[in-house]
Amino acid sequence: MEYYHVEGFRKRFSETEVLKGIGFDLPKGKIMAIIGASGSGKTTLLRCLNFLEKPDEGKIYIDGALLFDAKARYSERELREKRLRSGLVFQSFNLFPHYRALKNISLAPELLARRHIRAYRKEQLEASRGEPFFARRKQVRRRTRAYAKELKETNRERAESLLAEVGLADKRDSYPHELSGGQQQRIAIARALALSPDVLCFDEPTSALDPELTAEVLGVIRRLKGQTMIIVTHEMSFAREVADYVLFMADGVVEEAGTPEEIFLHPKSEKTKAFLKCREENS
C-alpha cells in the first residue's frame, strides 16, 4: 500500500453508475494525471475524494491509516477534519469575489486558527487555576490576545509567501474580478496550498482558460515539487511531461494505468489507443 491509497470507489446517481469500483495507489510527492473522455467519471471521482459527493462504496488510506470508509457514518465535524487532508482546485476557480487575493488565501487558515486560540485559552485558564479571579481573567485575556495576534501574523506571512510562490505577490490587494483567469486560478492554487493538504487535487484546472493563460497555470503546478497531486486534465502533453503516473478512465473504471511512457507510447487497451488517437487528431 502506497502513501495515498484509494480502493473500491463506487458512485451511482439514480439510474447511472458513474464509478464502478475505482482504486489506485500514489506514492508521496508523486503526481498522477487522470485522463479520459468526458463522462468517464473523472470529476465525480475527484469530488468523492474530497467528500463533496458521498460515494456508495470506497475507502481512502493515507500513510497506511484509514481516512475514510463510505460504509461508516461520519459527523459533519469529522468530515470537515477529513476534508482538510486533501485540497481541491476547481475548474471554475471559485474564488470568493468579496475578498482580496490575500484574504482569499488566508481566510480558511484564520478560521482554523480560532480553534487553536480557544484551546490555548482553555490551557491558560487551567494553568493559572488558584490565582485571584480578576487578575487571572485579565492575564489569560492578554495572553490569548497576544497568541491570536501571533497566529494571525503567521497566517498572513504564509499567505504572502504562497502568493509569491504563484508569482502574484504584487496582486495581494486585488479583488478576483480585477485579475485574469490565469491569475485567479493561481490564487486558487495558493488558497488550496495554504492548508497544507496531504494530497492536492485539480479538476481540469485550465479548461476555463484561454490557451495563452493555460501555460502560466501549468507552470505553477509544475513548480510544486514534492506535493502529492492528482490532476484531472485534458492537456495530454502536460500529463505526459509532469505526471509520474497516468490513469486512463473509461465508463467508470480504470481502463489502464501506468507511467506516462506506458500509457502514451505503448497503450495496451484498445480504448486507450482509440482515445489517444482521437486526441492527437484534435490537437
Binding site: 463533496l52 470537515r80 476534508r83 471554475s92 471559485n94 474564488l95 470568493f96 481566510l107 478560521l111 488550496a192
Partner: peptide, 19 residues
C-alpha cells in the same frame, strides 16, 4: 461552487454562510 470552495477548505456550514 462558492459553497463547495468553502467546504473543501474545511469551513463549517455557519462559517460558509457568514464568510
Amino acid at each position: 461552487g462558492q459553497r463547495e470552495a468553502g467546504q473543501v477548505l474545511g469551513m463549517s456550514k455557519t462559517q460558509i454562510f457568514f464568510r
